[in-house]
Amino acid sequence: MGTELNPAAVNPAVVKPPSMAQGFNAMLRRDLVVAFRQRSDLVNPLFFFIMVIALFPLGIGPEPSTLQKIAPGVIWIAALLSTLLSVDSLFRQDFDDGSLELALLSPQPLFVLVLGKIIAHWLVTALPLILVSPVLGVMLYMDADTIQATLCSLLLGTPVLSMISAIGAALTVGLRKGGVLVAIIALPLYVPVLIFGTGAVEAASMSMAFGGQLAILGAFLILALAFAPFAIAAGLRISLNG
């Protein structure tokens, strides 16, 4: 065992103290690579989002006035349900192949690794929805600045949705029947984001100012970024404690 690293094998003093950035980048990069290698997880939430939105005109009727009225709620609830659909893959695979245990045992603080994981998950599942939402907005007869409001509100709101559902996923990762449970846990906590998300889009559709609603969504985002990773880390430690 002659490689340079190995003298450290016995004398770990050579090892650099753990830096948050290294842990964060390692987790973010690895999850993005894994996600791109497994296309299906990437694409499913997107198709689900598109199909659910396409169903509403079929169900409620094609009149522009009604569609325009329900458009904000439709797009936001579809985004919310797609987040729920894609959250199960967040920790489940890592739990099954044991890499979640390695993350828990890492000297890097767990909440940083979890943050990296959630941002990777958000980039992979929520960002495509946001990019596609203008097209769907047009389908629901939205005018230009309503679509702009939808984009901004989704951009600020979906990370909060991902973080809330990650709390549910962390608490149920060890259970066989976790799927529906995450929805029951996370849905009540989605309500404020849903209210201000649709509020912003509605205000824009009535050509009123929607800056206020976006500001509150931004506040939720900061609150979630500050507190959710700790709750998720605690949830993971509890789930893997058994």
Binding site: P17, A26, R30, Q38, D97, G98, L102
Partner: peptide, 27 residues
């Protein structure tokens, strides 16, 4: 552990690099 923590969609090199970075290896 029983579960080795190796992700099957990654290559051995990528797996080991991730594990080492997680450990805070300096190189």
């Amino acid at each position: 552990g029983h579960l080795t923590g190796i992700k099957t969609s990654l290559s051995p090199r990528e797996n080991l690099r991730w594990i080492l970075q997680l450990k805070g290896v300096g190189e």
